[in-house]
Structures are given as C-alpha cells and as structure tokens.
Design a protein around this nucleic acid. Structure first.
Lengths: 350, 350
DNA sequence: GATACGGTGGTAAATTTTGAACATGCTCGA
DNA sequence: TCGAGCATGTTCAAAATTTACCACCGTATC
C-alpha cells in the first residue's frame, strides 16, 4: 500500500525539474516508443490528433498545460499494419476507447477492450496495443508527468487542476493502486473525453487552454468518482439494440451480394438510420456503407487469389453492380488492380 | 468602456481584504437585502439552498470557495407573498431561471423572464425580483466578490478558477459591459447551473468543493463563450410541444370540472406523460397534478367568496369528486376550512 | 478513364419515448 | 377524522427517433 505524504513546494519543484530518464532505446524502461504510431500517421494510415511536449508525437504544447506530456488520440478508420509493442511511459496514462476495439497487453495479460472502456497505465508499467496489429479504433488519452522519474516515487499533480489537497491525494491513491485492467466509462467520463478530443482536433492551443484545463480536470474528477464508488467494473452488458447490430454485422459477410443500403440494413435491425449508424461506428469505427465496402473488397481479394473466375463474376458475387466501379474501389483500397491479385497468392490485410 | 489593466498580486490582495461597505440599511447602495427571502425560507414557503459567507442567508462556506459570497438557489413551488425589493449586491451575480417565470427589474425596467433564461447583475446595480411578489420559480445563482467595494473599481476573479490571464480579462470585459438584460441559456450553461444546484442541495461543503469549483468555472466559461459568440439573445421561440402545453395550461382553468389525470392531459397534447410533465414543470414549476389542484383550489376560493352555494356544489364544479377530500386539501392550502371563506370577502393568494 | 449531378450516406442536436424506481395521494372503511 | 393499501403520479437516465444539413458516393454520360 502506497502512502501519500504531504510535501513542500520545494520538493515538488525538484521532482518535476529533473530530466526524464531511461531514454535509451535499449533500456528495459525505455520511456516512450510511439514511433510506429507516428510513422503510420505520417503515412496517412491513421489520424493522430495530439498536443504534446518532449519527444511525444503531435503539435507542441509550448508553455500551455504544464505537466501534460500528451493529450489527444488516434483515429484509425481501417485495420492497421502496426501496433505499439511493449513499452512504458514516464507518466501516468488515462485513456478511453471511444469506438472500435483494441487489444491491450498489461502486466503480460491480454485484454480485449470495447468501445466505452477506459483504463489507466501507471508510470513505468509495461504495456502494448494491438494483437499484434491495431484494428479500426478511436482512442483518446491524457498522459501526465506526475514527477515520477523512477518507479514508486511520489506523484505530483499540476497546479492548474485547482483541486483541493484532499482530492489530489485521493486521486493518487486510487490511480496508483488500481487493480482492474479496465473499466466501463460512465456518462460523464465519456463526455469529457469526447470533449477533449474535440478541443484537440479543432481548437488552437492558445485559445482553448482554459477549456481544455477544465475539461481534463473534470474528466479526472469523474474518473476518480467512478473508481471510488464503482470499484468493480460495470457489466459489459450491451443494450439489446447494440447486440442486434453486432449480430447483424457478423452475418453480413455471408450476404455480401445482397443489395444493401443504409436504409435496408437499419430496417433489418428495425432501427432508425441514425441509431444503426451509431452502433456500427461504435463496433467497427466505420460507418455502415464504408464497413460494407471494406468487407466486400476483402472478400473479393480472397476470392481473386484463391480461385479462377472473371473479375466481373467475382465483383458481382461481392455485391458490386459494376465491374468498373469495383476496379476503382479495389485499386484505391489495395493499390493494385483486381487482375493483378488474381495471379498472386492471397496475403492478409495490407 | 471599462478597461482592464494588469495588476499586481499586492493590489489584488488589498482590494479583496477591504471590508464590505455601504452596509447600513439606510444607504442608497445598501449591500444585500435578502431578508424577505430568508424569512420566507424559515417559514417554509420557499426552499432556499445556498452556501454563503458574510451576511447572506444559507449554510456557511467556511474556508471553501474564496470570493464566493453565495452559491445556490431558491425553489418556490407555489406563488409567494414576498418579493426582493430594489437592492444591490457588492458582488457580481450570475443567475439562471431553471423553471417557472420571474419578473426582474433592472435599471428601472421590468423584464419577464422564462424558464431557461440567464442574466447578470453587476456590482452595485439596482435590481428587484417579483412584481411585486415572486411566483412559482426555481432560480440558481453564483454571487462573486470580485473586489469591487465602490462602483467602477477593477474586478478580481478567484485564483481557483484556474483560468489563463487572457480569459480572465475577456470575462471581465464581457460581463462589465453586458447590455442585454437577459439571454437564453445554451445547453452547457443550463447543465452547469443544474449541476451547481444539485451539488449545493445534496452534497457537503468539504467533500464537494472540488466538483463545485470546476462546475462553476465551467459554467462561467460557457457563459462567456455564449456572450462572445451570441451577443444578441436567441429567439425565445418555443418548441412546438412546449407551446402546445402552454396553451393547454392556459385553457385548463376553464375546464376544471373535467376528470383530468396525467394520462388524460398528456394525451390531450398528444405527448408522452414524461414529456408533458417536463414542460409543465418548466412553465409552472409545478408538476401537472399539483398545478391542477392548485388552480382548482384557487377557483374554489374565489367562488366561495363571491357567491352562495353549498361547499359540495362548488367542490364538484372545481373537479373534486368528494367534498371531504376537498375540505382536507383546502385547509392544507389556505389554513382555513371552506366554510369559513364562504363568509369572508375574497382576498388574493395568501 | 474523366466528369457532372442527383440521390444516398453521415452527423449532430434537439426532441421524444421507454421503463423502472420511487413517492405520493386518493379512496374506502373504521 | 384517521389510517391502510393500492393506484396514480413523479423523476431520472438511457434509448431511440426526428430533423435538418452537408458531403460524397456511384451512376450515367461522354
């Protein structure tokens, strides 16, 4: 059990002013290893929206939000060809999976997170994202430098949280000994994270610093209250309509040749277009028609590689009414024409 | 136009440490005159939920929330027999009318506020509530001591807002020269005020200080953004269903003898029970059946005083199926039995 | 293949309903 | 007048729909 002594301002300043350590890529506790994510964002495979300092990828925070190392998130609208291998951060990471799904490895244990889950990674705790690659997902995080340069040191929260001392200590206690790998985010936490994401992706650092401060502060408070009152994670039970959509989506790949429209699919689940779209987004991080096309193209690629048949035939089987349009989409997705795939062995998602 | 110079900490401390002035009841700028409200709350006519310091009525804030003179609100579930006469506060009041309606007199001008309106009263600005008495209403406010001991002095906001200097100055500018008497509150402002009310009415000062700080801070930020972007008040246009309920309620007093139930009335407006209840609350600050009974009793009182007829007859005309039950309710509402009123001239609401 | 255009898809916000938990109030009998 | 008891009313959050607007896809045409 970690205790949280009171400390002087001087001690606090000293802790925070020390340089970050363990920064050599070879070291066991190598701090930060986001290069795969960064490269992918440069290549346009994933959208990275983050405000950061030190070596973390994103727009520089400058003087704003002291002690925040990184705030923002990634939005991957398609399966990716990278993952974040085992690594650790010098700060405490508080994160929320807004959409899609994600495999989190923590303390050597794999956990399948779903949209609406949130989790904490403590300073110097080894973790990885992806199995091994990341699938379509939208995740938002805040990474705080709490002055911990070696594991098990004391935590210091930023001044601008404007919290009472008592609440600061409670927060440290709850976070430093959180046992569960993940929690279901409540309404307030979810809203705060979404607002953080919105601020970071649309606002400018100077004009929105106050709002971002308050939103982060509020998120932490809701987060803490949830840990305190809930302790144990809520049932990951799904609402019935979400379950319906989940089942529908699982079956969809066996009925690719039907003449689906958004209207169609929603009606099949007896839901409104909006509701159906939302659930589909939550599950796949793709909008319905986009997801449909994505699995149609995957199926087409598989068929092209595994058996003979004209491109037009296969296009029709997979629900494309025009072989020309099929070729256009195919090329945009995989970079090569359908004809070329027909003569090569099948390889998993590029 | 007021300008907002930068100031030193020393100046700021000096401004805030001066004692409040103009406190003699005779003075033109007599600061604070809430005794009518306080008396009414002691008499149980109105629910007063407020955390305060100095002489303002409510639970003592102690060390918490420096520079807040009063935070909270009143909830009057029936028409009142008091109002707040012309007076002024030494702080800046930011307020929101959650339910019901309210007559605000500001700079000698009367304004009819409706549920969802918000307004600002600057330090030393003369204002009054009620015309002359307050009707059923639920109002929430925050009263800040911004260090203004005489009109036109500089404003200082509390440290715990944790705002950037730039935003503090913008806030002062916008509030100190707000011209409109009232604004329509946006979603965020409304939510923040409701949360403030909830914290003050259910939480304890020690345990909820952090949340209250953040919520007030957030409310101010949303408020400021609305003043900045909106400037001019949004149309007080009502949603069609709210208008429907308004009309229904206006007609209700001419059909008191019908056999109304919640179900009935909602169906008459073709709305769900919930929706109907919400709108009724917003308009009257009373729930449907409670409001119905309130106007039934008013009508009965009027009839009893103005003409002859048995109590039972009048009770039936006003929708009471049992004269015994009528008598019970009548006595609870007015303190006297129906028979007694029958022999006295009619007087307006007690 | 390129291009224009009409319809379909995407999204956010406001509105509304549902449903369950809880409180209260009306009726009836003593 | 006074209590039970059971129906009705109240409240809240979560789910779902509606509405309106914008963007972009996919078809037809060249």
């Amino acid at each position: 059990m970690l205790d949280v002594p009171m400390s002087t301002d001087a001690e606090r300043r000293r802790a925070l002013s020390r340089p970050a350590v363990f920064r050599e890529p070879g070291a066991l506790l190598y701090a930060g290893n986001c290069s795969d994510l960064f490269d992918a964002s440069l290549a346009g495979k994933v959208t990275l929206n983050a405000w950061t300092r030190r070596s973390y990828p994103g727009r520089d925070l400058g003087e704003a939000l002291p002690q925040v190392l990184s705030v923002g998130g990634w939005d991957a609208v398609a399966p990716q060809d990278w993952g974040l291998k085992l690594h650790c951060n010098e700060g405490v990471k508080i994160a929320y999976l807004k959409r899609g799904s994600l495999t989190l490895t923590l303390d050597g244990q794999k956990h399948e997170l779903q949209a609406g889950d949130m989790f904490v990674v403590r300073p110097w705790q080894l973790h990885a994202f992806g199995d091994p690659h990341v699938v379509a997902s939208h995740i938002i995080w805040v990474l705080f430098d709490v002055g911990v340069r070696r594991p098990h040191e004391q935590w210091y929260w930023p001044d601008w949280l404007a919290w009472s001392d008592r609440d600061r200590q409670r927060l440290t206690l709850l976070l430093s000994r959180n046992e569960q790998p993940s929690y279901r985010a409540g309404r307030d936490v979810a809203r705060s994270f979404s607002e953080i994401d919105e601020i970071v992706s649309t606002g400018d650092i100077e004009g929105e610093e106050t709002r971002l401060r308050l939103t982060i502060s509020m998120m932490l408070l809701s987060f803490m209250n949830q840990l305190k009152t809930q302790g144990t994670g809520l049932d990951a039970a799904l609402t019935s309509s979400l379950r319906t959509v989940r089942i529908f989506i699982a079956r969809l790949e066996h009925a690719l040749d039907e003449d689906w429209t958004l209207e169609n699919m929603a009606a099949e689940c007896s839901l409104s277009r909006t509701q159906f779209s939302q659930h589909c987004l939550a599950i796949t991080n793709m909008t319905p028609v986009r997801y449909l096309q994505s699995i149609r193209l995957e199926a087409a690629k598989r068929k092209l590689a595994s058996r003979s048949g004209t491109v037009t035939e296969i296009a029709h089987e997979c629900g494309f009414s025009s072989s020309q349009y099929f070729a256009t989409c195919y090329k945009r997705r995989f970079g090569i024409a359908p004809m070329e795939t027909a003569h090569q062995p099948y390889t998993a998602v590029a």
